[in-house]
Design a protein around this nucleic acid. Sequence first.
DNA 1: GCCGTTTTCGGCCCGACTGTTTTCAGTCG
Length: 590
Amino acid sequence: MAHTLALQRTASPGVAASNAEVGGVFDEIADWLELDGANPFRVRAYRNAARTVGGWPQPLVTWRDPAHRLADLPGIGNDLAGKIEEILATGSCHLLRELRRTHPRGLTALLRLPGLGPRRAQRLHDELGITSVAGLLRAARAGRIQTIKGFGKDTERHLLEAAVQSLGTVHRWKLSDALQQAEALASYVQGAPEPARVVLAGSLRRWRETVGDVDMLVATGHGSALSRRFLSYPMVHRVLAQGATRSSVVLRSGLQVDLRVVRPASLGAALVYFTGSKAHNLALRGLARKRGMKVNEYGVYHGSRRIAGFTEASVYASIDLPPIPPELRENLGEIEAAAAGTLPSLIELKDVRGDLHSHTEASDGRADLETMARAAAAAGLEYLAITDHSHGLAVARGLDRRRLLAQIEAIDRFNETHVAPVLLKGIEVDILEDGRLDLPDDLLARLDLVVGAVHSHFDLSRERQTTRLLRAMDHRCFSILAHPTGRLIEERAPYAVDIERIVRHARERGCFLEANAHPDRLDLDDVHCRLAKAAGVPLAIGSDAHDAGGLAALRFGIGQLRRGWIEAKDVINTLPLPALRARLATTMGA
DNA sequence: GCCGTTTTCGGCCCGACTGTTTTCAGTCG
């Protein structure tokens, strides 16, 4: 959970809390209020605020000026604005400290269990003294849950399973893992003899970097047959729910898939509804209500008369909006932009003319130059940068002077004998602990681009890590900062770094930040991409491919760029090769 | 706690499914 992560770091003195940390505080407050049975709309206000603040494209601490008041943010009034000020300054707020002081610490973890909400979590605490997932597990195993009025044997069994699951396994799935399973299931359901259209919706369709479950939508006139087909999928481990229009299963992998069946005439409305996000949908409904209309998953209604719903565009048009791309639907300004006619023209995969980050068997890749080049050509790329590791990264058999010189020669030979793609001479050079680069200047200067990256000393203080990166970027040959936060999704947290300073420095220095498209990284993430765009820093998308198949990762990078409101003009490798070379030359000590 | 083209109070999205209930509360998305 994002907010737990955020709260593990207490703000250091003098360092303002990040947007994510402010959002984390609001999320935890919402948890406690919910357990207390507070006014649900008050809880929602905190939840909305957490989302708004956590996804705001500019750091709030620098955003406040005479033109921007915190209370002007959507869903932020005077009270929450005051709390944001307090959290920015101290990392926490009085209300949160009070809530923590007066409640057992582990109780909020219970809310993360599927099937357990605030009402019943509070009853488990009041009647059995349960304050943690482990405590719940013990009580369920002892058969004490079913002794509470309103809790039966089935409920106890479900809670037991949920507790076991939550203590042992993944909570969220990497986008690439979930997509692979979802596409296989969709294709199986689509194979039913009855006519139907199967579409993946939910956070998967919005290309969120991780997804909690999969939402599958089937538009058909043969609902019961398609539901049976869905439930008969051989990889189904357990059926959680089954109904005429809605079913839910857990696959053997543990991935949950929710199915919704709608009639074809409602597909557009259902797509809007089940693509989400929830916050986006709530905002749409609010707009519709003002116009005297009602939006649900079946259509848009004026009184009892249905006025839209066959296509997504018709739903948006009914509230006077152009269609909004799924990746933007987070209620982070896209509805206002749509109303103002200022939606960005989002980058597409076909806009990318080349890949600026790839490896060969010279370091830790698994294919040779020729194979990588053929794969790039097959992917329609005009150029491919070969950026093997430098020798400091011994585990990856990084290149020393002799081997890099050999590779430079090999690439020159390749380019002399092949028309396309053009191979660019690069290196993913290690940024040493003190910010120096791992290869001498005269060598780096012979390359087309220098991609710098951190692969060691992840645990430096925020100040030292940031200084290290700033110094590396100051090197006269530095082109692109690769995977700037070093995070591995669901595996390794980002190292402590002041990303806002990095972004500002990149602009001043004139170098570029990578949007690493590897499905384990997606680094920069969507929020950081938007931050970079707001600061006017161009991005470079790179697949970080280690074999021929790795180039396909670009689609995941494009997903994050689109979520970050990025257009083709914001990404340097949408440029034709001569223009790209000119841009890179400005970073190479020219 | 927020918000306002019916505005400073009284609203705040809404339909489906489950489990334990005899008519509904809780949860989910």
